[in-house]
Design a protein around this nucleic acid. Structure first.
Lengths: 209, 209
DNA sequence: TAGATTGTTAATCGATTAACAATC
DNA sequence: TAGATTGTTAATCGATTAACAATC
């Protein structure tokens, strides 16, 4: 770790680097230069080298980067090796879809449990994960605090769910409620997926061409 | 429209402005200054005024902005008033979740149809929208080209689906496949929702505190 | 060794913030 | 009118790109 402060812009590019490197590795590519990676990704070689230099020296002059090694390094920077634990709160369509399709393990997360209020769901297993009664949430967290909670609850209970989980010790939130949620607690981190924001930027672009 | 080139950074903030203004309007707030909107959103008043000035003059000295009016202006800038048409290609868990939960109409989109290969789904209606046989896609698009296609197909057919739709005239793609998709065609726009990228940035942050 | 490519420093470019005259 | 707040210009800050010595 070299730099004091790493900008959010750099951090947001790391998963994309990881994705490309993973792809290259799966295709059997052994080494790559910042130049050819840059042209594949549509960014400058300079930016890649500058970004990586925030975290260390991963390349070799005259050779470039070893794909597998660099993927590993970026994986470690992102914390993929940390085996974080995660729970899903709210098993509606979206929560269900994430349980069924999203590869938590591939991203270094172990999906431990899901919670909902619906009697029809409670006790069932989705993709090997038990859906528990939301009433059990407190007891569950007191036994072991998950690193992250996926918020797929209705908008109306988004903030109160956050408050409850923060009180229980949860510090990471992956927020799909399309609501801004906050916390007083300084260590709490939110990462929001705003579907509408995404579609609206597309709307903006297609509206003027 | 004042400025020649609007930066992507500005564009990506617009939906958030819209969201906040919509919220304020629903709470009955009539007017707001850049200063108080800024502190609500955690950004500077300067940035808000600078951003808005790219598109016109929407405020009044000594008064601020009329909430409803400004929401309307930003809505128009984003194209929410344009009544874009959209189709969903791939009705798995995620496609299904979007059909059930996402408020397309609220964001200026009319969801016209969905397509899948599964005989169990074809012919059914989800939230008032007919699921059609993917075989019908070509005929459907020849009758009327949707502005946007939601890509919720499996990764393995992501790019070929794009190619097919671009050939049919579709120019906007809301991509959920977690794959980079591209097109030679210069007018085609992609907006990708990369779940893994989002979770990995969260992973990064919680890994170091 | 010669060629290739890194990591890093310097230069450029763009985005954010501050300041303020204009004006409701 | 006086106070408030805009839109815009200027100043600052940060991020991206270019250049190049170091070195595999």
């Amino acid at each position: 770790m070299k730099k004091q402060h790493i900008s959010e812009a750099v951090i947001r590019r790391l998963p994309r680097y990881y994705r490309y490197l993973d792809d290259l590795h799966n295709k059997g590519v052994i080494r790559i230069s910042s130049n050819s990676l840059g042209s594949k990704m549509g960014i400058t070689a300079s930016q890649i080298r500058q970004d990586l230099s925030c975290f260390g020296e991963f390349g070799q002059q005259g050779y470039g980067y070893n794909v597998k090694e660099l993927r590993g390094e970026i994986g470690r920077i992102l914390g993929i090796d940390k085996k974080h634990t995660i729970i899903i709160v709210g098993v509606g369509n979206l929560g269900h879809a994430l349980m069924q399709n999203f590869h938590f393990a591939q991203n270094g997360f172990s999906l431990e449990a899901a919670f909902d209020v619906s009697p029809a769901l409670i006790g069932s297993e989705i993709n090997g994960v038990l859906v528990r009664d939301l009433e059990e949430l407190d007891a569950y967290c007191r036994a072991s605090i998950p690193d992250v909670a996926v918020l797929t609850v209705p908008q109306s209970v988004a903030q109160q769910t956050v408050d409850r989980l923060v009180d229980l010790g949860v510090r990471g939130f992956w927020n799909f409620t399309n609501r801004e949620v906050t916390s007083e607690h300084p260590d709490v981190r939110f990462e929001s997926v705003h579907f509408a924001d995404s579609l609206l930027t597309l709307s903006y672009h297609i509206s003027r061409q």
